[in-house]
Design a protein around this nucleic acid. Sequence first.
DNA 1: GTCTATATGGCGATAGAC
DNA 2: GTCTATCGCCATATAGAC
Lengths: 210, 210
Amino acid sequence: MVKPSGQPEPDARTRILDAADAVFVRHGIDGARMQEIANQAGVNKALLHYYFRSKADLARAVWLRIASSFAPGVLQLLASDIPLEDKIDRVVEAYYGTLTKHPYLLVYVISEATRHPKLVEEIYTPERKLAARGMIATLRRQLEEKARVDNTAAISAEQFLVTLLGSCLFPFVARPMLTTVLGLGPDEFSKFIDKRKRDLPLFLKRALRQ
Amino acid sequence: MVKPSGQPEPDARTRILDAADAVFVRHGIDGARMQEIANQAGVNKALLHYYFRSKADLARAVWLRIASSFAPGVLQLLASDIPLEDKIDRVVEAYYGTLTKHPYLLVYVISEATRHPKLVEEIYTPERKLAARGMIATLRRQLEEKARVDNTAAISAEQFLVTLLGSCLFPFVARPMLTTVLGLGPDEFSKFIDKRKRDLPLFLKRALRQ
DNA sequence: GTCTATATGGCGATAGAC
DNA sequence: GTCTATCGCCATATAGAC
């Protein structure tokens, strides 16, 4: 996922992992071919088995790399003590960068997580479990505080989280459907996303105040 | 997807299509095995090829059936002239029924649509294209009317649509991640969805007024 | 139409030279 | 560590009897 920035060719193992990343994300684990990964890495198929015993092991390695780099940033952001309304901006901002560049990434994570739920638990370490609880607690505190000040009923932290994530992530999940239904070309989709980056925080904040 | 309701066994072709539906939705096209479909349909593997030439053709037939039955209802709902705020309730209501019963359906549609965008165009007939345009136009009109009355800036119809759909559909898209992060068991997830069915319309309506 | 048996090809995986 | 060559399986697909 993260491309090498320096000049020297990365070693074979790294090239394989990068290639596997690209191919698995593009085609899903079942749809990926070891041959294609080998080609893209510029090595022989046998070398994949030398470094990673089997396709399943390679897929697992890729999954760990991707899934680990996916959530923590946003989780930490949401768990922090910055004001609730700022969080909205920051979450929107944080996701839209990488997801624009990697159109298949989110669908890969979702489909593999859905079809092999064990993969999710594998990256859900005790520390992360704790962090997630803390994040929810912080969110709840902020929402209750807001409700107290505005003298309204507090919104459920879990519900708010899902609405926030859903609103942010859905365009990248349903991209082909949306571009077709809305009649958008590739660059029009970009414009749509740009506009959304500005509009969505306003919309959500409006729902929050009173 | 639609299970037979009457007593008599459906004919083999139908049974195959139903079985293929279940297996493709569960495992994705690449992950599905013809043998499993045959077993589930109670027929021999060869019969699948008798009715549908190849796996690809069978997958295509299933896709057409599912995708066709998926959008039209909601599309029609959104295009109708019922008040905007009522639409929110109805959309939420409409999706949550089937998606609760078919946990893999949405992820299947999304992943296949993403990896094979041609499949999307195949179900996007001229009539549906027209209907989609009309739906957006109606939505825009309603949002502008609302803005005029409230004396505020109108929200983009496209953006509103995506927010509405995203908020509704995301829990079913990200279910395994959410249950893990929020620490929900299967029946707690149901409760979460029930609560969401009540809360989400309120939240969205609040963002709309003023 | 539905079955049994078989062909065909592709893919993951291994052996072994260098 | 990296390659070439090859194995063995398994999934799709077909032939042909009933």
